Simulated assay, not measured.
Amino acid sequence: MELKVGVVGVGVMGTYHAQIYAGLPGVKLVGVADPDPMRRRVIEQDLEVPAYADPEALLGQVQAVSIASPTSHHYQQTRLFLEAGVHVLVEKPMTPSLEQARELVQLAERRGLVLQVGHIMRFYQAVADLPNLLGNPWVIEARRVSNNRRIRDIGVILDLMIHDLDLILLLLREKPMRYTVVGQALDGRDEYAHAVLEFPSGTQAVLTASRVSPQPERSLTIAQPGEVVRMDFTNDPYTELSIHRAMSNGELGGPTHVHVERTSIHNENPLRRQLKHFVDRIQRDDPPLVTLEDDLLALEMALELSKALNSLPQDRRVMPYPR
């Protein structure tokens, strides 16, 4: 039996959701909702499904829904569908506050519904390979910069840096002890942020996110004993993996050279993989890739950094991470 799905919010990301659902086997896209009449007309013409102004119009028609509206609407809309017994995939960040996110998690658990957060980086093949490359890292550096201020209701930490916070927290499986954060706000939103997180294992994570950089870059670099591992995600759908190892000629104090292994990893449509995982969790009861506690931890850290950055935007802040 086909799973009847809908999409709320058909901007750039929501349109991708709708297009993929329309082509997924075992899934029927029954409609979308968006307040913009032009977006609705485009979807109705391209995908030949009804488009509504109000998300409530989808109630009674859908068994599952993607929420791809602005973050400020996530809590209200996710709650609306969960209370109606509908499974929900909500784009990151889940909500603008940790309290709202916890409430939604509890509601989904009480109702026995799938609630999944759209952290698309988890579905890159290159990211799936990362645990096999991880040793005892000294430093993990993540850079995610662009010149795109399209998202206006949240700052750069909740918009971009949260991707890399999520990956690092999943890789290390520990909470940071303390952090440093600096940045710059424009028009009331943080648009550039640089954070250093210190973990109990001794690893430091250095994260940079920007929406005002001229040259786009998405990369992750891991420095660990004997090697440096770098992944460059900039040129989708391929991730360029390079492993740099120092090689010695065996003589004490003799010269060394660096041997570099390079591999190109094809990431087969991570969004499709993410939506297929969501559908399989509902139809086949597949286990989740990560837990909702993992989602809450990434959101908690992003909110903590954002709060610190915006409280004293001109100062350097070094603060203990609350336990």
Rank of each mutant, 00 (worst) to 15 (best):
L3D: 09
G6Q: 08
V8C: 12
V8R: 03
H17V: 14
G23Y: 07
P25S: 14
G31P: 03
G31N: 06
P37S: 07
R41K: 15
A53D: 08
H74E: 05
T78H: 08
L80E: 03
F81D: 03
A84I: 03
V88F: 10
V88K: 05
L89H: 15
L89Q: 15
M94H: 02
M94W: 01
M94P: 00
Q100N: 02
R102W: 04
R111P: 03
V114W: 13
G118E: 08
Y124A: 00
Q125L: 08
N132C: 09
N132T: 09
N132A: 15
N132R: 12
L134M: 14
V139D: 03
R150Y: 02
R152F: 00
V156P: 00
D159Q: 02
I168R: 02
L171W: 02
V182E: 11
L186K: 11
D187M: 10
E198V: 12
G202T: 09
T203D: 04
R211Q: 06
P216T: 08
P216D: 05
G226T: 07
V228I: 15
D232C: 08
D232Q: 06
D236T: 03
L241C: 09
S242Y: 01
I243D: 04
S248M: 12
G254D: 10
V258T: 15
V260C: 05
V260S: 03
N269V: 00
R272F: 07
I282L: 13
R284A: 06
P288I: 06
L289Y: 10
L289K: 14
T291N: 05
L292E: 03
E293W: 11
L299D: 00
L303W: 01
L309R: 07
L312G: 04
L312W: 04
D315S: 13
R317M: 11
R323F: 13
